[in-house]
Design a protein around this nucleic acid. Structure first.
Lengths: 109, 109
DNA sequence: CGATTCAATCGTAAATATACGATGAGAATT
DNA sequence: AATTCTCATCGTATATTTACGATTGAATCG
């Protein structure tokens, strides 16, 4: 995605960006929605739900794991993915904080 | 960023992803935070606040405009950027909806 | 009119992201 | 031991993102 000079931004700004990236692709949105709906860890049937190749789904899952929103548990022969409660609350708080600020309508006058 | 098969996802999933993209880069987070803090439209001094070149800032602003979160008003010789109230509420509602779902802790059992 | 100022756009380089087929690793089953 | 199943990873092609300098366009100011 280009270089992104992360050093020149605050830790919080970088964290917000990372958490937003988790939702910044429709496939990852779909994965998260599915995990929320099922209320429990869902395994490789994500591949069947999503219209993407298995390798692609696995890649998205890896990204979500790196951000921290998901964690996977090996449960042979399957792997279960669950939303990480702690990080989920972190994201909820961070986005809540951003959007609680009300916007002044009067502007550019 | 690769190809992103947007056709195979729902409109809503694509919209969520687009709105998340607005926050998916620390520079854009900084821009939005600044506009929220100033409560009014701020013009080209964003370039001074951000440690990025003028062309880069302009590019981020363009992206935010395309998503709809910002709109710019020419106010010669400057251009004022404001947060689009309507889209802001849309984003607030969408992220609120996602994060209101509580996560089951018991998982992978 | 000429100079200046602000911001968008162009052109470009480099890094990432997205997607997929193919292959590999690990465990259970036959 | 061979097969099967599930999932991660490798390799790769292509598109997009990020960033910047340089240029252009529009408008004000001297």
């Amino acid at each position: 995605m280009g270089v992104t000079k992360t050093q020149v931004f605050t830790d919080k700004q970088n964290r917000i960006a990372d958490l937003a990236k988790a939702l910044a692709h429709p496939a990852r949105v779909a994965i998260i929605q599915h995990l929320l709906k099922e209320k429990s860890c869902v395994c490789g049937d994500l591949v069947e739900v999503l219209p993407l190749a298995q390798a692609t789904v696995s890649q998205h899952l890896k990204e979500l794991k790196q951000i921290g929103i998901l964690h996977g548990e090996i449960n042979p022969p399957r792997v279960c993915y669950c939303i990480n409660e702690t990080v989920w609350q972190e994201a909820k708080a961070i986005f809540g904080e951003i959007f609680e600020s009300d916007v002044e309508v009067a502007c550019c006058n």
